[in-house]
Amino acid sequence: MAVEIQAEMVANVWQVVAQEGDDVAEGDTVLILESMKMEIPVLAEAAGVVAEVKVTEGDVVQEGDVLAVIA
């Protein structure tokens, strides 16, 4: 089942760590957001393959935006 990773808060996309097609384990860093003057890693909540990364570095994301999809 595909799992969407959503932004929890308004943030800048600071670094995209996992690429489409990568295998990720639960707890792996998928990308790093920048908000509240902090670099906040966004982790995979389930193991799988990164099916889609919907943002690029420098994007501004809003709360609830889908950042990536893990299938």
Binding site: E8, M9, P41
Partner: peptide, 8 residues
């Protein structure tokens, strides 16, 4: 927990 919402 800084990992979530920066710990705010």
């Amino acid at each position: 927990n800084p990992l979530r919402l920066g710990g705010c």
